[in-house]
Measured scan of single mutants.
Amino acid sequence: PDFTLHWNGITIHFKGIDEEQFRHLRELLDRGVSLEELEELAKELIK
C-alpha cells in the first residue's frame, strides 16, 4: 500500500510499505529524526 505523511511542512510519499513499517516511520518522525536519518531509513526500505 501507499502512505502519505505530512511532516514539518514536507509531504512524503511511501510506496509499497506495510502499515507496520509506516507506523515505525511515524514514531521516528514524532521523536525528531533528522532528514539524514530519514534518507538512510528510506535506503534500507528500498533494498
Rank of each mutant, 00 (worst) to 15 (best):
L38S: 00
L35S: 03
K47F: 10
T11I: 09
L38V: 14
G16S: 05
L5R: 00
L5N: 00
L45Y: 13
F3A: 01
F22M: 05
E44H: 10
H13L: 10
L28R: 06
E19R: 10
T4G: 01
D18G: 08
I46M: 10
R23P: 01
F14I: 08
S34C: 03
E39C: 03
E37T: 11
T4K: 07
R31A: 09
E19G: 11
Q21E: 04
T11P: 04
K15E: 09
R23D: 04
E19H: 12
L41Q: 03
D30E: 13
K43V: 07
N8I: 02
N8Y: 04
P1T: 14
N8E: 06
L38Q: 00
D30Q: 13
D2E: 12
Q21A: 12
D2K: 11
L28K: 05
I46F: 07
T4N: 03
R31F: 07
E36V: 10
E19K: 10
D30S: 14
A42T: 05
L29G: 01
G9I: 01
I10W: 02
E44A: 10
E39K: 11
E37A: 10
P1Q: 14
D18P: 04
E44K: 07
I12F: 10
D2P: 11
L25T: 00
I46D: 10
L5C: 03
G16L: 06
S34I: 05
L5M: 05
I46Q: 09
R31E: 07
T4Y: 12
K43W: 08
T11K: 09
H13W: 11
S34K: 06
I17N: 02
E37D: 09
L25C: 02
E37S: 07
L25G: 00
D18Q: 07
H13G: 04
V33W: 15
E40Y: 09
L35A: 06
I12N: 00
P1L: 14
I12E: 01
S34H: 05
A42S: 05
L38F: 09
F14T: 01
R26I: 07
T11H: 14
E19C: 10
E39P: 04
D2S: 14
G9T: 01
L45K: 02
K43P: 05
L45H: 04
W7S: 06
E44G: 08
Q21D: 05
L35Q: 04
Q21G: 08
L45T: 05
T4W: 09
H24Y: 15
L25Q: 00
Q21L: 14
I46K: 05
P1N: 14
F22C: 02
L28D: 01
S34N: 06
R31W: 08
E37M: 10
H6I: 10
N8K: 11
F22T: 01
I10K: 12
K15F: 13
H24D: 02
R26T: 06
L45A: 06
G9K: 02
I12G: 01
D2G: 14
N8D: 04
W7V: 07
R23S: 05
L29E: 00
G32C: 06
H13F: 11
G32D: 03
D18M: 05
E40I: 10
A42N: 02
F14S: 00
K43Q: 11
E37V: 10
E20H: 15
T11M: 06
H6P: 01
E27Y: 15
G9V: 01
N8A: 10
E39F: 14
G9P: 00
F22N: 00
E19Q: 13
L35C: 04
I46S: 10
E40N: 09
F14G: 01
E19S: 13
D18W: 04
L28S: 06
L41P: 00
I17A: 02
S34E: 04
K43C: 03
T4E: 05
K15V: 13
A42W: 13
E39H: 11
D2L: 13
I46L: 12
E40G: 06
D30A: 15
R23A: 06
E36I: 10
R23L: 09
K47P: 11
E44S: 10
R23N: 08
E19L: 12
L28T: 04
G32W: 07
F22Y: 10
P1K: 15
E40D: 10
L41S: 02
Q21H: 06
T11G: 01
L29H: 04
F3Q: 02
L35Y: 08
W7I: 09
G16H: 09
I10V: 12
L45E: 02
F3W: 08
A42C: 08
E27P: 01
R31H: 09
R26G: 03
F22I: 03
I10T: 08
E44D: 09
D30H: 14
D2N: 12
S34Q: 04
D2W: 14
D30R: 15
H6W: 05
Q21T: 14
L41N: 02
E39V: 13
E27N: 15
G16N: 11
K47T: 13
I46P: 06
I12S: 01
V33M: 13
E27F: 15
E20R: 13
N8P: 01
L28V: 07
E44Y: 06
R26V: 07
